[in-house]
Design a protein around this nucleic acid. Sequence first.
DNA 1: CTAGGGTTAG
Length: 692
Amino acid sequence: MASLPPVVVGNTVKLDSEFKKLSSPSSLPFEKKNYSTKELDKGFDSFSLEFREALSLIREGNIKLESSSYVPLLQECIEKKSVSRVESIHAHIIKTGFTEELFLMTLLVNVYAKCGIMRSARTLFDNLPQRNVVTWTSLMSGYVQNSRPELAISVFKEMLQVGGYPTNYTLGIVLNACTSLSDVEFGKQIHGYIIKYDIAYDASIGNALCSLYSKCRSLDMATKAFWRIKEKNVISWTALISACGDNGNSEMGLDVFIQMLVEGVEPNEITLTSVLSLCCTMRAMDVGSQVHSLSIKLGHGFDIPVTNSIMYLYLKSGCINEAKKLFDGMNSVNLVTWNAMIAGYAEMIILAKDGVSAYLCGIEALKIFERMNRSDLKPDFYTYSSVLTICSSLVALEQGEQIHAQTIKTGFLSDMVVGTALVNMYNKCGSIDRSSKAFIEMSTRTLISWTTMITAFAQHGHSQQALQLFEDMRFVEVRPNKITFVGVLSACSQAGMVDQALAYYDMMKTDYKINPVMDHLACLIDMFVRLAGRWKDVSRVRKMMRDEKVDKITDWSWINIKNKVYAFKFGNKKHQSDEVGKILKDLVEKARPLGYQVDETNLEMVDEEKEEATALADAPHSERLAVAFGLINTSKEAQIRVIKSTGMCRDCHNFMKVVSILTSRSIIVRDSKRLHQFYRGQCSCKDFGGFV
DNA sequence: CTAGGGTTAG
């Protein structure tokens, strides 16, 4: 950065004459139109009373019209984010001839930027006969705010090229652009420049440096940047609190917040949102409620982001009723509110104590999604990723397909996260073909996309494809992580590829320096148990589980037919006499000649287990009931998709294989461990189901 | 004129 010119703080820069040649002025967008007063008035209909009164005073000449007369009017445009109002006022300014006022033009650039129309801001800027550093800075700030940080930096370079001098404000904005771009290198050069030219280390620079270093995962540097600020403002404190949260140190964030209160700095709604986000990470319901009360006390109780955060905290902590109350009480909501509700219910699927409530949470989330679709706010990529994931949990293929169509229509499928969620959804719903099609159609893939697809192939027993894909991923130089290796090892394990598994295990530790976790070891152990066939050990583990009184999860299964959920519980006697029971008995009879019997040749069962197995005919495991119900209530060729709260047992697994032959149906059972797709007497898990 | 925040995928 040695080529940067020296800095004069607060200097107004005269552009050199060369620059005027560089930008060829074209006409202002409003110049050619000949506005009549009537037309102007029409544009003002929606303005506030004060605004219209002020304007008529100006028009009638009752107050002396100065460039500053427009300031409050333009401020109202920012508040209301009203594009039409800015354009009307701009037209008015052109008519009254105040376009020569640099201050007013600069403000106008700002207002256009704040209203999100950078094209007009840029056109206006390009046609100005003169600019000062504030004009340049305003344009840059507009680009940062409108998610075009790269343009902010190019404007900055343009400014330096024509001999402009940046101020500390300008440099703060450039640093923020670097933060958005994660361009730490350029950010550090700017920092070096600030030190070299001894630029005043004020809040605009300190805050920006704090965020920059937070973004590049250096909480230490961010903290130092904060403490160097002599006159810390509320934004400085907020920046540090967010930095703590972003770098996984929520406890420190809370400490900083307390310190801020002790120093008598009043938090604003953004501070409160950041603090609530920390509470959410920590699941700190107690602190969260206090912050909630504080928010109300400080008059931010109706702030949408604040309410969204507290709502999300409730949802993450399992307080669904409180969250719902909050949601119902909001007089206005935004997209994030809907997304938080949907993602929150998705979270409840994981938190739920039993399978029924988990399933109902998923259904509830899809209902909220439907309500959202009917509202005036439309789903975005956050929404689509969440609902696709919910469809995965519910094995809700039909809903998933509809959402797939919706993502194509709205263009959100091009989002990598949505694409990955779609790959996962088709996989979890048992369609590996459509899963891999969705993967192939992705224009860009992330580590998670690759991992999802590899895991999908492994889950479906396509070990070769899983491993091939892993090599493809390495070829395009995407670095695998520990979850990728879980997929890879389970692929090897299922195919019985002992040597390869060990080689990949070694690769993980040596080449990628990834420490093994339980899941990796479990894959290896599974593999050895399978090739050696040490079923006696399996029995022993089961006995241990009983003796240790390991809580048994209730065995529930659900089936979703025409958007209605039907739940079945193990041991429900009611089905002994109804149609479900009848069809089950019938199937068991027909299954015998095909080699199915309640007899475990592989397992050396203890008596208790034998009894349990024999009793199955009278008290069938829940998935049998759900599958039987599905057979009765769906069309002849339809695929049956069942979700089960616990792991399948070997006996039911054998039974389902035979049922898939007898009925010529494809049957999917998603148990707590994996997905089983039964078709023509085979299961996609290749009998490697980790049966308990 | 400047600055800070909440919600998605394995």
